[in-house]
């Protein structure tokens, strides 16, 4: 059974960059990729599409990433969430993991770093 991915980021460039990277043959096949531009959109999409994996920006309009992770951990506990953020301080990462994130990738990231982080998330 193939997996579903939800990419949450207020930057279209980052959303497209991650989505494009899913074609990398080193990654497991993904049959459905959804995109969301903020936390509220992400929550709505997650409830209807039930993604297996989620990449989550932290600084976003409407609902920020931390609040979204907290809600997702309640309503979709099986989903594995990786934070992709330019906020690089340890306190932010620890808060995100405490709230239910399973991985952390700092922006800016290289292609190799993104693939390695996604592999780790999907393992």
């Amino acid at each position: 059974m193939k997996a579903r991915l939800l990419i949450v980021d207020d930057s279209m460039v980052i959303r497209n960059l991650i989505a494009r990277q899913m074609l990398d043959e080193r990654l497991p096949p993904i049959d459905l990729v959804d995109l969301a531009g903020d936390g509220e959109q992400a929550l709505a999409i997650a409830l209807s599409r039930k993604p297996d994996f989620i990449t989550m920006d932290l600084t976003m309009p409407n609902m920020d990433g931390e609040a979204c992770i907290e809600r997702l951990a309640e309503v979709l506990p099986g989903a594995r969430i990786m934070v992709v953020s330019a906020l690089s301080d340890k306190a932010t990462a620890l808060r995100a993991i405490s709230k239910g994130a399973h991985g952390f990738l700092h922006k800016p990231f290289s292609e190799e770093q993104l693939v390695a982080a996604l592999l780790e998330l999907m393992s």
């Binding site: 340890k90 306190a91 620890l94 808060r95 993991i97 405490s98």
Partner: peptide, 8 residues
């Protein structure tokens, strides 16, 4: 942060 880290 230390409290969170130890908890994790």
């Amino acid at each position: 942060s230390a409290r969170q880290y130890l908890g994790l």
